[in-house]
Each structure stands twice: as C-alpha cells, then as structure tokens.
C-alpha cells in the first residue's frame, strides 16, 4: 500500500511503497538480475519486504517513468 501509516510503534510513521536499496552495491543490484514475481504489494508488518513488494515498487517506478509530466517550470517573481 502506498503511504500506509503505521501507528503501532512508539511514533506513527508513513511507509512508502518504494524500497530502500541505498545500502546495496551496484554489483549486488545488477549481477543476478532476475525477473521479480508479480502481484500487488503485500502488507509487510515487520518491515521486511518480499517479492511482491519489490514488484510493486518497480511497477510504480515504471509508471513514474511512463508518465513523467512536464518539467515544473516557474517564472521568477522578480519585480
């Protein structure tokens, strides 16, 4: 679920559908690339993700790429 709020901990927190791979090396991420099982994101209560959550994350990333929208351009409010 995107933006699920978890209120069971000491402080409420918002859990993203996007997986944190910032701790993985490029070698780890690319050396054994395999297809990830499909299906909707599973609700992970303990924080660990599974193949479904990863698949959901990658689908969401693909959707963002497919619908990038226009760059947000604004005019300065110079007077």
């Amino acid at each position: 679920m995107d933006g699920a709020v978890n209120t069971t901990g000491a402080t409420p927190e918002w859990r993203s559908a996007m997986i944190d791979v910032s701790g993985l090396s490029i070698g780890d991420l690319t050396s054994k690339v395999t297809s990830v099982p499909g299906g909707d994101a599973a609700d992970d209560t303990d924080g660990a993700t599974n193949g479904n959550a990863l698949a959901h994350c990658l689908r969401r990333l693909a959707d963002d790429l497919a619908n990038p929208g226009e760059p947000i351009a604004g005019f300065n409010s110079a007077l």
Binding site: E13, W14, R15, I19, L29, T49, L54
Partner: peptide, 20 residues
Amino acid sequence: MSTAALADARPHRLSDAALA
C-alpha cells in the same frame, strides 16, 4: 550480496512528524 538481499530490502519510511 545477491538478489535475495534486494528482496529483503526494506521500504523507505518517514515519521509522521517528518512528513508534517
């Protein structure tokens, strides 16, 4: 590390205070 590590990765989280 392997793809198993990728599958074990955790979702990003923000505290409610951080989102606010």
